[in-house]
Design a protein around this nucleic acid. Sequence first.
DNA 1: AAATTACACGAAATCGATTGCACTGATTGT
DNA 2: ACAATCAGTGCAATCGATTTCGTGTAATTT
Lengths: 338, 338
Amino acid sequence: MSEVNIKYLAEKLGLAPSTVSRALNDSYEISQPTKDRVVALAKALNYQPNPFARSLREQKSKTIAVIIPERINNYFSQVIDGIEEITQEYGYHLLVYSTHENVETERKIISYLLNGRVDAIVMSVSSQTKNIDHLETVYNKGVPIIFFDRICKEIPTTKFITNDYENGYKATNLLIEKDCKKIYFLLLSKEISIGKERLRGYLDAMKESSLPFEESWVIQCSQKEEENISLISKFLYGMDRPDGIVASVEKLAIATYYAARETKLNMPKDFKMISFSNMRIAGLLQPTLTTISQPALKLGMECAQLLMKKLTKPNQPPLEDKIIVLPSQISMRESTGK
Amino acid sequence: MSEVNIKYLAEKLGLAPSTVSRALNDSYEISQPTKDRVVALAKALNYQPNPFARSLREQKSKTIAVIIPERINNYFSQVIDGIEEITQEYGYHLLVYSTHENVETERKIISYLLNGRVDAIVMSVSSQTKNIDHLETVYNKGVPIIFFDRICKEIPTTKFITNDYENGYKATNLLIEKDCKKIYFLLLSKEISIGKERLRGYLDAMKESSLPFEESWVIQCSQKEEENISLISKFLYGMDRPDGIVASVEKLAIATYYAARETKLNMPKDFKMISFSNMRIAGLLQPTLTTISQPALKLGMECAQLLMKKLTKPNQPPLEDKIIVLPSQISMRESTGK
DNA sequence: AAATTACACGAAATCGATTGCACTGATTGT
DNA sequence: ACAATCAGTGCAATCGATTTCGTGTAATTT
């Protein structure tokens, strides 16, 4: 590829490779005239240092892995945009992987990353993840790891989430205020940390209200769109259907729209819904969807900022074991009634 | 990080590093018993070869760059999913970059990749891209590059697109069949190759019909959502507003929905619309949107397949200079009338 | 018995950049 | 006047894996 290497430059300049290297790195031991000559030639030949030689020597890759459960999801796209915005400034590169919500894939991806290929990992765990051996391995190897959204509490590192408990609570109360008497909660999977928090908010809100509640109102959904639609349709067909639904993730809200269409029920007349979602077009659905949207871009930026500090400044302590909570925003729309 | 290297293994086994390397690579010069011992220990210690040492030596990175204009777009997410599905099997990694439709960013990203960091580039050029020096540099350096969707015709390499001309033509005729008399075309930017093709299809369909046509019906939109909405609203307010709209990209269709709401016009009664789009929820909009959706996943997979062949098989010729066309699919929905 | 050959493995060079140490010539201190 | 200091540069080792070229042994051939 690029035949212009440091040895070639050295030859052209009548200097030693080491001198060229030091000149390019602006070392104090090199005289200004020499530096100027070196830099000039490097620019003229468009010299680009070989990243692998450098990584090998320095034991760092200037690369960060981002692992997400799915790509077709605005939320994750926005988070990555946020991460990239910051890391780009520092000359870092992003390896992006999707687990497709599959733990086995997650394990495999992680195993590829334990050989120094990346300097750090930013991830949102798959909904299937129960056994966290692979995550512990990462931690034990000393690779900085940051979790976001779907975090793994057991690993002592920094995690970023939104105020899920609070919003689960608020969302539920919002439906209660709108006079809903029977509120269901759609859960993607019990393993997801944020699902749990949102559920906890819902449960507490239900408990505090004087409304009835049954365990079976917490609906465990799957990854498969079709299954979810028929599952939701099933209980919407029932005489004892809910008149309020809290969807813990966007795709369940969408499934509910399809189910509503199938069952010919009218939203918000027959039932109201609120969903956690970062869709841009929530305002174009029929009816428009009341959402709780997460500050995805900001979250990505903060993750990256923290990482960059850790990776680029000398003598940084390990990432603190703490959870940073960013506030979400509720947008009232038609699906919860006017 | 990982202290288990080939030298360490060699020591433990009482062998030379070269022997260990050969054993792990299943060289014919190593006896079976020795191979077994080496492989066993490597597995036991969970030995992972250092990717940089290997890349440095072999002059290849097993990494591919994917450059897209924006992340928050299902189409691109699906393409990347497709690419990843194939490249993962071959042990390749994906560096993903977004240009945010900015040529300067595009240039910068490309410049980072010319030092051997990646073995190939798969990209969709930004809508601003006119000057293609940076793309020519890539080509001249011998880095395999594949374009998709928004291609750069001037570079002699393989490009993947969908049958944009044909679909622009079909979409327009579809509106004509639905009795539209005045059909506008929403264009994102004249620089985008696919925009041009879709436009050409529209123009030809208009020409062939007996309908009137004016140059000003091709609306040049920008990247800014707000600007587009007010631009579209403006002509929708006019007395001589269109009764049919072909949106060349998804975001313009969305802007049109907002504009329709603002101007209190009814779709499909007052005007009909068809859009190129890969939205999953086109069927949930009000009215549901008739779309031409591209085979994004498949496109990604075919790109990757071609690349993998080029990169993993010996003595491959350069990527052929040709355009591969994949068929899109039209989904009729309410926005074009029943 | 000498020579060829197959086999199993080791030594050292290589990829390209960085860096600890050594060396030269000039300047400063005593 | 002679040692000590220092700026400016080169030499060689290093990072970890691969690979070229050998080496030594045993088996087989002539």
